[in-house]
């Protein structure tokens, strides 16, 4: 169970800061593995991954791989972007409900607007300085 990896020949506009916890996520993502933390006590997923469970406050969490399959809850295209992203407009973004019951927001890879409530899949995107993820119409 792994997700597709796309290469991008440029650095990320605004790179995330890995921590001891989230570095595990970013390093796996680079290899096409999309995972997050799940509580060993209450069985709840959390995203972004955390060293604690926000639901029951347990400190006992494990990494669980996600399928990367989900449904598009909503989307938009951003034409007026922050200066940091001026070379990346228009920016496509969406909210995705993953099949494991987690809602995330991320960039969309689309040529035309993906219909709301249609299936999407997460892909890893390898930039020259590290990875990000995004979603595209499910094949």
């Amino acid at each position: 169970m792994s997700i597709d990896v796309i290469e991008k020949n440029r650095p990320r506009a605004y790179p995330p800061r890995p921590t001891e916890c989230t570095a595990i996520f970013w390093e796996a993502l680079e290899k096409g593995k999309f995972q997050t933390t799940k509580c060993n006590d209450c069985d709840s997923f959390t995203f972004p991954p955390k060293p604690i469970c926000p639901h029951c406050w347990s400190s006992s969490v494990s990494w669980k791989e996600l399928s990367g399959k989900g449904t598009l809850y909503s989307r938009t295209t951003i034409y007026a972007a922050p200066a940091t992203f001026e070379n990346e407009t228009p920016i496509h973004a969406g909210i995705i409900d993953l099949e494991e019951g987690i809602r995330i927001a991320t960039q969309l890879i689309e040529d035309e607007a993906i219909p709301i409530d249609s299936p999407v899949e997460i892909v890893a995107i390898r930039y020259t300085d590290g990875p990000l993820y995004g979603a595209r119409k499910a094949e």
Partner: peptide, 10 residues
């Protein structure tokens, strides 16, 4: 900042 901002969300 680490899981939304990198995508350019305003």
């Amino acid at each position: 900042v680490d899981f939304h901002t990198p995508f350019g969300l305003t």
